[in-house]
């Protein structure tokens, strides 16, 4: 009994430790979402929530349904791998109601250099130019058609 009385204070610290642990577990119980870990190390409900978000991109096949001529031109040119909405922006609303929602007109002087401005970090075989020197102030589409940008294919609209 005497031994216990002289060691009893150790239990006090152990109790404090246990209290902190219990507090942690209680807080954890309330703050960690219930669906956490359902499928992996993330919130399982996030999948449903993400799926329920409105769709902004229509997808290339939706564009090609109406714009068959442009889709064919693009498919034959250097931009075959670039999806329509990569340049035109998300257009699900336009695809759903083409008459009332019109995509904005693009400015090629701004748009093209996003990808084609010269940078040493880009692969050597990727077409890139110092825009000011290359065009002398002309906008890109004066010479390059955006849907099939190689100059020799000009006219093949």
């Amino acid at each position: 009994m005497k031994n216990f009385r002289d060691s009893e204070h150790l239990l006090r610290f152990a109790f404090l430790f246990a209290m902190v642990l219990a507090l942690f577990l209680i807080v954890r119980h309330f703050v960690v979402p219930k669906s956490f870990g359902e499928y992996g190390h993330y919130r399982g409900a996030a999948i449903g929530e993400t799926a329920a978000r409105p769709i902004h991109f229509a997808g290339q096949s939706a564009c090609a349904t109406c714009h068959t001529d442009i889709a064919a031109t693009k498919q034959a040119g250097m931009h075959a791998g670039v999806h329509c909405e990569a340049c035109h922006g998300p257009l699900a609303k336009h695809a759903a109601d083409p008459a009332s929602v019109q995509p904005p007109k693009l400015d090629t002087a701004v748009l093209c250099v996003r990808c084609h401005a010269a940078s040493a970090a880009k692969p050597k075989n990727f077409p890139q130019v110092a825009a000011a020197e290359h065009s002398g102030g002309l906008v890109c589409e004066t010479c390059h058609h955006p849907h099939s940008p190689a100059i020799q294919s000009e006219g093949a609209k």
Binding site: K2, N3, R5, D6, S7, E8, H9, L10, R12, F13, F15, L16
Partner: peptide, 18 residues
């Protein structure tokens, strides 16, 4: 002190050992 009030020699020896 977490309410501890024991300063007996034995309790201090327990502190040392722990």
């Amino acid at each position: 002190s977490l309410g501890s009030n024991n300063t007996s020699e034995h309790s201090l020896a327990v502190d040392e050992r722990a």
